[in-house]
Design a protein around this nucleic acid. Structure first.
Length: 424
RNA sequence: GGAGAAGUACCCAAGUGGCUGUAAGGGGGCGCACUCGAAAUGCGCUAGGGCGGGCAACCGUCGCGUGAGUUCGAAUCUCACCUUCUCCGCCA
């Protein structure tokens, strides 16, 4: 959510920056009228309330002295009715304003390339050499099915499409990766480990920006108004909702493992095979809360923390800086880390690292105090996958495959795999 | 799921419609005095925050779990909801 005062004072500038995102901004022009009507109503209603408070005190004095106060009571009854009318109108105006503000995307950072879609994203860097197989490489779903370590067919019987059973060394590989990633971020990168709830309420989903605009992307629990988490970002960021943090405790760094649930509305027919696009997948998520002046350094740090996983796994990747048209709703700046997938003959997103600045913090009321008597300020929030585990499994299977259909286990994972060196 | 109890400021806690209730009192914290220093003691300060107005000092308004309602006036009365706790049932 944007700062109302900032929007009021810099309306044209904000509007033109948001236009680079290519989103529908037709609501934005209503802001001026709603905002000034709101302030009018507040002034009027508060003046009446001040009067009512004052006269009520006088009434109490008169009553105590057993004097007549009927005319004052009658007058205040009318004032009370007027206050109620104004308050109702105010409430309506504020609801409209709130609805509008919650639907306005974040302002892109000045370093974000201006562009329309993914073709305009800019490559920030590349790491590792692409594998050179002396044979025809297989896609991970064929490899895994032949090795009997993933079972998509039975998952569709038990649940439906876009679900999977991991079996045997497949399950073991997933679990090894989860432990490897958690250990790396907790022990080496200084993040505090967390296992969050897999369901969150509507307020939490609104706090991080999934709602109100993107409800169709989430799974909602019938009768509960709870949502399956689309990412651990939601529970972990909302962990500090409506809190004022100590400046001395910043930056706060959390690494959380959770399953992630996405309805993938609108992606029918895309990535229908394999692990790439499932309704449920495991992910290790990095989340940071920091002071505003630090957040762009933190974004680089957090992205580097995620890259480290791929470097240790020796998987080739590149880092893309998302352009204004591909930023998503909430981010001010975003890097996607894309891993090389031989079956696609291209890089595919395996992590997304974003700086939200104070966009989420304002929605979720997450603030900090610089000094004891200081005014609270909004923190900046950031997060990034470190990494999506299912996609990491597919990258390992494809990049480490051998001609006979077996798969070498990356060295760093072997301690987590009971010393196993090959999946065959 | 059934029956009960509770939610007041950093913590504990008093407060059943106006009476310094302008949210008491205590703890903790901070400051000052005493002291070479400290302890002890004494004195003082200690809601925070949102919103509106103002260049500011400041003024106003809303805050006693949340939201509605009754009333000239609500922490206090009414209703709904949330959370926590106790007992019973069920359960990994």
């Amino acid at each position: 959510m944007l700062d109302m005062k900032y929007l009021r004072n810099n309306f044209d500038e904000v509007k033109s920056k948001l236009q680079n995102r290519g989103e529908d901004l037709s609501d934005l022009d209503k802001f001026g009228d709603l905002d000034s009507r709101r302030r009018e109503l507040i002034a009027e209603t508060e003046e009446l309330k001040a009067k009512r408070n004052e006269v009520s005190k006088e009434i109490s004095v008169l009553k105590r002295e057993k004097k007549d106060a009927d005319h004052m009571i009658k007058e205040m009854r009318e004032v009370g009715e007027r206050v109620k009318e104004l308050d109702n109108e105010l409430k309506e105006v504020e609801e409209q304003l709130e609805t509008m503000l919650l639907s306005i995307p974040n302002i892109p950072h000045e370093s974000v390339p201006v562009g329309e879609d993914e073709d305009d994203n800019m490559e920030a860097r590349q790491w590792g050499d692409l594998p050179d197989f002396g044979f025809e490489a297989k896609p991970h779903w064929d490899l895994a099915t032949e090795l009997d370590i993933l079972d998509f067919e039975r998952a569709s019987k038990v649940t439906g499409s876009r679900f999977v059973f991991y079996k045997g060394l497949g399950a073991r590989l997933e679990r090894a990766l989860l432990n490897f990633m958690m250990d790396l971020h907790a022990d080496e990168h200084g993040y505090q480990e967390m296992l969050p709830p897999y369901m969150v309420n509507r307020t939490a989903m609104t706090g991080t920006g999934q709602l109100p605009k993107f409800e169709e992307d989430a799974f909602r629990i019938a009768d509960w108004d709870y949502f399956l988490v689309p990412t651990a970002e939601v529970p972990v960021t909302n962990y500090h909702r409506e809190e004022i943090l100590d400046a001395a405790d910043l930056p706060k760094k959390y690494v959380a493992f959770s399953a992630s649930f996405r309805s993938e509305a609108g992606s029918a027919g895309r990535d229908t095979r394999g692990l790439i696009r499932q309704h449920q997948f495991n992910k290790v998520e990095l989340v940071q809360f920091c002071k505003p002046e630090e957040s762009y350094d933190v974004l680089e740090e957090l992205t580097a923390n995620a890259e480290k996983v791929l470097q240790l796994l020796k998987l080739p990747y590149r880092v893309m800086s998302m352009c204004t048209g591909d930023l998503g709703f909430t981010a001010a700046k975003k890097y996607d880390i894309e891993v090389w997938l031989p079956s696609y003959n291209t890089y595919r997103e395996i992590s997304s690292c974003s700086n939200f600045e104070d966009f989420q913090a304002r929605r979720a009321g997450i603030r900090f105090r610089r000094e004891e008597k200081g005014k609270p300020e909004y923190v900046h929030t950031l997060n990034g996958s470190g990494l999506a585990i299912g996609r990491t499994v597919s990258a390992i299977l494809e990049n480490y495959q051998q001609e006979n259909g077996s798969v070498i286990v990356p060295e760093v994972l072997r301690p987590y795999m009971g010393g196993k060196e090959v999946i065959k």
